[in-house]
Design a protein around this nucleic acid. Structure first.
Length: 202
DNA sequence: CGCACGATGCGCT
DNA sequence: GCGCATCGTGCGA
């Protein structure tokens, strides 16, 4: 399936289809690549979504057309990366929660250790939205509202398509409202999904 | 191991 | 003020 078609669809359809796509980020030190293994869908009618209470300066990118980027800052210290989906005017998107490192491991390790001061296992480099953003060098919200490809972030087609049988759905992580709906999607066989999910799945 | 809590700043009521 | 689409640490078993 073409990326354009995926990004044009609503977040619930787009989220599982983004699994397996390769997230790429061009940094001064070099190119960094990782395979997306865990995502969550958020849309306007969803009380857990930032777009639910309407458009604000912060959430405006969510209301742009599919393929834009939405970056938000939370818990006083973490950033999280979302891919906006759907038509312009509708506030929805897909949170990238975890990925498997492919290229630029050195750069990612350096980016992560810069904050903690400690070494980080390869498996943990991109496990969780906050860590993922750190590893690929997102240190502010300046990418929010930019378009994929026209910025330093873009997606490449999966090296191998993820089998439908290898995709699982479950409740989303860390939210209060609408916490029961199974709008988190992840690659069942991947050891790179976040820990709470692996516990929930096992 | 698992669990509980503190860090830390911005958007929203 | 409060709460957050989180993470690392420190403690006890």
């Amino acid at each position: 399936m073409k990326l354009e078609a995926i990004l044009k669809s609503d977040s619930l359809s787009a989220a599982p289809r983004l699994l397996g796509w390769v997230l790429c980020r061009q940094l001064p030190e070099g190119l960094v690549k990782a395979t997306i293994v865990e995502v969550e869908a958020y849309h306007q009618d969803d009380p857990a979504s930032h777009s639910h209470r309407g458009q604000t300066k912060r959430t405006a990118p969510m209301f742009k057309s599919g393929g834009h980027i939405y970056v938000y800052f939370t818990y006083g210290m973490y950033y999280a990366l979302n891919i906006v989906t759907g038509p312009a005017g509708v506030g929805e998107g897909v949170l990238i929660r975890a990925a498997q490192p492919l290229e630029g491991l050195e750069t990612m390790r350096r980016n992560r250790s810069r904050l903690t001061g400690k070494a980080c296992a390869d498996r943990d480099l991109l496990r969780g939205p906050g860590r993922l953003a750190q590893a690929i060098g997102i240190t502010d919200t300046s990418l929010s509202g930019k378009m994929l490809d026209k910025s330093s972030i873009f997606l490449q087609q999966p090296l191998e398509p993820i089998a439908a049988a290898d995709i699982a759905a479950g409740p989303r992580v860390g939210i209060r409202h609408n916490a029961d709906v199974p709008w988190r999607f992840y690659v069942k066989s991947s050891p790179y999904v976040s820990k709470s999910i692996r516990l929930a799945a096992s």
